[in-house]
Structures are given as structure tokens and as C-alpha cells.
Design a protein around this nucleic acid. Structure first.
Length: 349
DNA sequence: AACACGGGGTG
DNA sequence: CACCCAGTGTT
């Protein structure tokens, strides 16, 4: 039996019952694919359910405020996905009359839809002959065929795309594509693959040559940068108990674009109370004096893929009203990074 | 061709 | 701690 038939047979027996598998509605498949980019099924599933419930149709998503979309996305990371998701929904409504594109060629014109996602949607929804190559597929193919070209090199990307197309199932592309990804996720796992009960064990090169632990080959990634964040958390206390604080939206490039955070004083190294006192008037844009205290006794280390953020939260009690302050009762409406959200919980905001 | 972009799970 | 996850867009 051919490789693709083995995969298909395995899939029919072992596939998980996932929410988006119940349909071939391109809106639902697209949404699930964007959410699952670089994201585990377990982490993405609750987000998928929330999005579908909040935006049953692509037009609902298109007409939403970006703030609403980002808030629903909060905690999932890679926030450009949320911005592109929103932009793509508008493209579907404005450029395609509200009907989702039905070919790879058209799908890949959508913001946030690259080669993988266009292949996934076109094959799963329309059974178009396109090969998906995600992290799972790289692993399965590199092991089964014993390919040692680095998967994240230009040559590797080209090679695996062509290989994936060569071994694609003859007729059932829809299930085969989901099958090879599911196979990688459940059977041919990164660590401790279940080779003992693998339907491909007779012909797997990596198993035969004891290379499952070195395949796929991946070029090492870049170094992690350390940054020092000092959040200045103003507390405008008024007599009637209607307390407020200040949030700013991150603009430009870099992490957490368009999300909100407390006024930030970033430094080259760890700073102390003295330095905070010298800078808070400038950072907050106020003239009043503040009583400053450090909230976290231990520096909070927030780890991103490329950055370690050493963070201190400074509480600034200010005995004056502030016009554009945010009432504490409305803090929960703003999309914020997990680092900020965690602090808000710890501080009992 | 390399890099930036989050957060969480796993061994 | 290192690696990985249903990748894409920018430089």
C-alpha cells in the first residue's frame, strides 16, 4: 500500500473529534487555521469556540471593532494574526461580496494567509490538489524519507513542498492533508514517537537508521535579547472611591502592537526607586508629585520567543484628578498582553 | 536569507 | 532549560 493510503487509513481510525472538523465551511476552516498557526490545538480550541460564537459569520467579524477582535485574541500571542484576521474578513466582504474565496490562488491574497493556510483551506474545503507543509509534515516526511536538508532553509522549504506534492493522495486530498498533520501530532511526535505501533515502521528510513531523534534537521534560531521594563502604574484616588489609572496603546513595530499597557519606562539595566522618581513626571506627562512604591518584590521575568522581559511594576499614588484616566472598572475592556493581565490579577484590579 | 513575532506545553 | 506548536510578513 502506498504511503498516502497508509496515512489515510491511519487517519480514519485515529482522528480526533475537533470542533472545526464537523464542517467544510471555509470561514470556519480559515478561522481555525489562523488560530492554529504556531499554536497547539489544546490552546487554540477555546479561542476558536469563542470566535465562532461571537462572530458566527465572516461579516460579523468584518464589522467588529479591532478592539473587540484583539480582546478575544488576548493571551493567544502573535497578535498580527488577529489584525490580519480582521483585515482579511473585511477583504472577503468588500472584495469577494461576502463569499469566501474558493481557490488557493485567491485565498493566498488574503492578509495572514500564506502558502500553508491557502493549501489547507483549498484542500480541506474544496478538495483542491494542494499539499500542506506544516511542522508536522516536515517531521513525518523528513523521517519517513530520511531527508536531512534543514527544514527552515530555503532549499529545505522548496524540497519538502515538492516532496509533499509528490506523495499527495490521488483523490482524497482533503482527508489526507489532515491525516498527515494528525499523524505527526499524535503518532510521529517530536519526542518519543510511537514507532513500535506505527503503520509505516517497515519502510521508515529514520527508524531503520536510528535517526528519529535527529530528524527533522533544523537550523538553530537567533539569540534571546534581554530588556528591562518598568511599568508606572498610576493610582488616581478620589474621595468617592472611583479610582482610575492610565493605559497607553503600543504603536509602531515590535511586540504587542496595538495592545494596551501601563506607561512604560524601559531601561538598559535594572533600575531603582531613585531613577523612577527622576523620570515619572516625563513618562506620565504630569506635574504632580506621586508616592512611589515597588509592587513586586521579585523581578517578573516574562519570556517571549526572542526576548526576556525583566519587569518591575511601580505603583504611583497621585492625589489629583486626571482627565483621560481609565476607571478601574473599565480596565477589563482593553486588550492587554499576558504580562499586564497577570499583574492586574495580582494587584486585584 | 535572516529575523521578528507570544504564550504555553513537554521531556 | 531547550524545543516545539496545523506559519506569515518584513527587511
Amino acid at each position: 500500500m502506498a504511503f498516502s493510503d497508509k496515512i489515510l487509513e491511519w487517519y480514519n481510525k485515529n482522528k480526533r473529534d475537533l470542533p472545526w472538523r464537523a464542517s467544510t465551511d471555509p470561514y470556519k476552516i480559515w478561522l481555525s487555521e489562523i488560530i492554529l498557526q504556531q499554536t497547539r490545538v489544546a490552546q487554540g480550541t477555546p479561542y476558536y469556540l469563542n470566535f465562532i460564537e461571537t462572530f458566527p459569520k465572516v461579516s460579523d467579524l468584518a464589522s467588529a471593532k479591532q478592539e473587540t477582535v484583539l480582546k478575544l485574541w488576548q493571551g493567544l500571542g502573535y497578535y498580527s494574526r488577529a489584525r490580519n484576521l480582521h483585515a482579511a474578513a473585511k477583504m472577503v466582504v468588500d472584495d469577494y461580496g461576502g463569499r469566501f474565496p474558493d481557490t488557493y490562488k485567491k485565498l493566498i491574497t488574503l492578509k495572514g494567509v500564506g502558502d500553508y493556510t491557502a493549501s489547507a483551506i483549498s484542500s480541506i474545503c474544496f478538495n483542491e490538489r494542494q499539499a500542506v507543509v506544516d511542522g508536522n509534515v516536515y517531521r513525518v516526511l523528513s523521517r519517513y524519507f530520511g531527508v536531512e536538508i534543514p527544514i527552515n532553509s530555503t532549499a529545505g522549504i522548496k524540497y519538502f513542498k515538492e516532496l509533499a506534492l509528490e506523495v499527495l493522495h490521488e483523490s482524497n486530498v482533503r482527508d489526507y492533508n489532515q491525516g498527515i498533520m494528525e499523524f505527526g501530532a499524535i503518532q510521529c511526535t517530536p519526542k518519543n514517537p510511537n514507532c513500535g505501533q506505527c503503520p509505516l515502521k517497515e519502510s521508515c528510513v529514520a527508524l531503520k537508521e536510528r535517526k528519529t531523534d535527529v530528524l527533522p534537521v533544523k537550523l538553530k534560531k537567533t539569540k534571546v535579547k534581554t530588556r528591562y521594563f518598568n511599568y508606572l502604574v498610576p493610582l488616581f484616588v478620589s474621595g468617592n472611591g472611583l479610582n482610575s489609572t492610565l493605559l497607553k496603546q503600543r504603536t509602531g513595530k515590535g511586540i504587542w502592537q496595538d495592545l494596551w499597557e501601563f506607561p512604560l519606562l524601559e531601561s538598559e539595566s535594572d533600575i531603582d526607586l531613585k531613577t523612577v522618581k527622576e523620570n515619572y513626571n516625563r513618562v506620565l506627562g504630569i506635574k504632580e508629585e506621586a508616592m512611589v512604591t515597588l509592587f513586586n518584590t521579585e523581578v517578573v521575568v516574562h519570556k517571549l520567543s526572542h526576548q526576556h522581559l525583566y519587569t518591575k511594576f511601580w505603583i504611583l499614588e497621585i492625589d489629583a484628578p486626571m482627565p483621560d484616566a481609565v476607571p478601574i472598572s473599565e480596565l477589563h475592556k482593553y486588550p492587554v498582553p499576558v504580562l499586564i493581565s497577570s499583574f492586574m490579577n495580582a494587584f486585584k484590579f
